[in-house]
Design a protein around this nucleic acid. Structure first.
Lengths: 212, 212
DNA sequence: CAAATAGTGTCTCTAAGACACTATTCC
DNA sequence: GGAATAGTGTCTTAGAGACACTATTTG
């Protein structure tokens, strides 16, 4: 039975939306790399792998990230399933979209490009649609899903960085009210100010509590 | 290539949480039926099917519902993916959990049992875990996801029914405040009172706007 | 009338948002 | 001081929740 059943299934891939926040650019970036094989050879695409028998989604996401030459244990989570049958010209395939947060400074391999979520070029398959659909999810997860948020901010960050992150991902946010949002966050503590800045009052430094 | 790749994939099933609200019992019920084959032959289980090549999730959910002898086009949506490799004794398999809202009065086939979400007996596979995990989702979707809510309430309903539904799915809810929640709902209109009741002031009748 | 159920009036608390004002830095 | 950036005070609105009170029905 197993053989015939498997033959009738769609292929199942895990595609990863690898996100990082780059304070210098004041934007959230997503990691993409050119495909090495047809279809869409040479086109930029989200890193993805075929889900292996018995493999956990998180494991597959980690394998996907190795396509960007990113290794190590990064926070990941489910986004949603994309099931449009013609999304892959090779035939019907499912995409299980996962998010992953990449530490700032992890640039990945030579051919990895980090694009702003606002200004994404044309990607292979339905990957643009995947990004657009998941982006609203990300906006609602920020400051609500702590693993996700902490993954983007890193263990410590300044008010300014947090503000830029929030503006970029969620859009409208009043600067005057933003500190109140940070103060309400559980597991987050203010730790004095940042000494080194150029021009203007230095921002508060925030540190996530140990727990994790 | 296709053959070898498919052989290495987990099987993928779509399991449906078929929900209906039964005003008489003042509770949300989930449809389960005894399995006809091993494993777990005879055990109650969520209706599920193997996802066919090229099949949409919604189509698979509809096929699953036919296991409960429920046909017709009902609202469905994604819940989440369950990927624990040992969730099926036959071998690694993914479960794509979907919700479906069944019109009140649709009882399905002879062997279908409708269990309260509060008092669910032991189900096959990891189906209890699936229900528990998805239930928090349902609580947050009620009165926020209109397709979901409308599927549970039906096209028209009374304040009392809506209150019972909300209490059962989301827990705490103050009766005094509940009408305000209904008044805030977009696409929902009050349409006078229900004439026939026994004992007590008759509740308001609410009707969803045509749009759908 | 009493009992039962439905619905309103208020008050509190919290989050979100607007917006003027104050605070701290560098030049 | 002036420019630049960070942060507070305060007011408004909306939703959630508590809770007493009023309203409408049946018997």
């Amino acid at each position: 039975m197993t053989g015939s059943v498997l033959d009738s299934a769609s292929t199942t891939s895990v595609d990863v939306l690898a996100l990082r926040f780059r304070p210098q650019a004041q934007q959230v970036e997503i990691g993409v790399s050119p495909r090495k094989w047809a279809p869409y050879k040479g086109s930029l695409a989200l890193p993805g792998v075929l889900l292996l028998r018995g493999e956990r989604l998180t494991e597959a996401a980690t394998r996907s990230l190795s396509k960007l030459s990113i290794s190590g244990d990064v926070p990941t989570g489910q986004c949603m399933v994309f099931d449009e049958p013609s999304r892959d010209p090779r035939g019907p395939s499912l995409s299980l979209a996962m998010w992953a947060t990449i530490p700032a400074g992890e640039d990945g391999g030579e051919d990895v490009e980090w694009h702003s979520l606002d200004d994404l070029s044309t990607l292979a398959f339905d990957h643009n649609e995947i990004v657009v659909n998941c982006r609203t999810l990300f906006a609602s997860m920020l400051w609500r899903d702590q693993r996700f948020t902490r993954g983007l901010t890193g263990e410590s960050f300044t008010s300014k960085q947090a503000f830029d992150l929030t503006m970029n991902l969620s859009g409208a946010m009043n600067k005057g009210n933003f500190n109140r949002l940070l103060k309400r966050q559980p597991n987050l503590e203010a730790r004095g100010n940042v000494p080194t800045t150029e021009g203007g009052r230095p921002p508060t430094q925030w540190v996530w509590a140990q727990s994790h």
